[in-house]
C-alpha cells in the first residue's frame, strides 16, 4: 500500500465526521495546515517561518497566519474523574456527609455545582438519580448524542491512538497497538464477540485506572500523561 493510500484510509472516518457535520473539503484545509505546523513543532523543526514552510510544504503566508493560532488545550474530564473516584458502594446519598455524591463532586471540581456534574453523568448513562440517592450504572463516562464532551473524547482518543501507531512506524517506539480482526461472521457472532471484548476490556481499564489513581495520589507531580484504550468496530460488507 502506498503512503497516499495509507493516509486516505486513515482519513476516511474523519471525512465522514466532516460530512456529517456539514463541512466540506475547504473547511478542512486550515485544520490540516495547523496539524502540519503542530507536527513540525513536535519533530523539532526550527520555529522560523522559513523553516516551517520548508518542512511542511505550506506557503509562508499560511505559516505566518496559522502558527500563532494555538490548538485548544486538552480539558480534563471532571465527570470521568468523578466516576474513577466513586467508592465501592453502588448507591450514594445525594447530599450529606463525606460519603455523599455532593461531597464526591466537590472533591473533583469545587467551581462546578454538583447538580451540573450529576446531570452530565445521568445524560451519559453513567448514573441514575433515584430519589435522594445516586446509583452507579457503569464505571465509565461515555457521553453521547454528538455532544461537545463526546467530540472531546473522539479527538483525544483518536489522537493518542494515531500518535502511538505513527510513533511505532516512524521511530519503532514500541507502544502497544494490536487488534483481533476476522471476517466471515454474522451479526449475532459479532455482537457476542463485542460483549466479550467489552467485558474484558473494562476489567483491564479498571485495573489500570485504579493503579494509576494510586500512583497519582502518591506523587502526582510528574510531567508524563498516559492513555491506554480499547475499541471495537464491526461492519457488514467491504468497506474501503
Amino acid at each position: 500500500m502506498q503512503i497516499a493510500d495509507v493516509l486516505t484510509r486513515a482519513l476516511v472516518p474523519l471525512a465522514r465526521l466532516a460530512i456529517g457535520r456539514g463541512l466540506g473539503v475547504r473547511d478542512l484545509l486550515d485544520p490540516l495546515k495547523r496539524a502540519f505546523l503542530v507536527a513540525a513543532e513536535t519533530q523539532g523543526v526550527r520555529q522560523t517561518d522559513s523553516a516551517l514552510a520548508l518542512a511542511t510544504g505550506l506557503q509562508r503566508r499560511d505559516v505566518v497566519r496559522l502558527r500563532d493560532m494555538a490548538v485548544a488545550p486538552r480539558i480534563p474530564s471532571a465527570p470521568a474523574r468523578l466516576i474513577a473516584r466513586w467508592p465501592d458502594a453502588a448507591v450514594l446519598p445525594l447530599r450529606g456527609g463525606d460519603d455523599s455524591f455532593d461531597a464526591l463532586a466537590r472533591s473533583v471540581r469545587r467551581d462546578v455545582h454538583p447538580r451540573t456534574l450529576l446531570d452530565a453523568l445521568v445524560a451519559a448513562g453513567s448514573v441514575t438519580e433515584e430519589g435522594d440517592t445516586v446509583r452507579l450504572v457503569r464505571r465509565a463516562y461515555a457521553p453521547g448524542g454528538g455532544s461537545p464532551e463526546q467530540l472531546l473524547y473522539l479527538a483525544d482518543n483518536l489522537h493518542d491512538h494515531g500518535a502511538a501507531a505513527v510513533s511505532n512506524v516512524l521511530a519503532d517506539a514500541g507502544f502497544f497497538d494490536r487488534a483481533a480482526h476476522f471476517d466471515g461472521l454474522d451479526e449475532a457472532a459479532a455482537s457476542a464477540l463485542a460483549a466479550r471484548f467489552a467485558a474484558g476490556q473494562m476489567a483491564v481499564l479498571r485495573d489500570v485506572a485504579e493503579a494509576a489513581r494510586g500512583l497519582q495520589d502518591a506523587s502526582g507531580d510528574g510531567a508524563v500523561r498516559v492513555r491506554f484504550g480499547g475499541y471495537g468496530y464491526w461492519t457488514e460488507g467491504e468497506e474501503r
Binding site: 464505571r139 467485558a199 473494562m202
Partner: peptide, 23 residues
C-alpha cells in the same frame, strides 16, 4: 486528569461468563 471514558459504548451488556460484570 484521570478516569475511564470515551465515545461509547453507552448500552454495554458486559456480563460475560468468567469475566467481571459491571459496575
Amino acid at each position: 486528569d484521570g478516569g475511564i471514558g470515551g465515545t461509547g459504548a453507552r448500552d454495554d451488556a458486559t456480563c460475560v461468563e468468567g469475566v467481571t460484570c459491571l459496575p
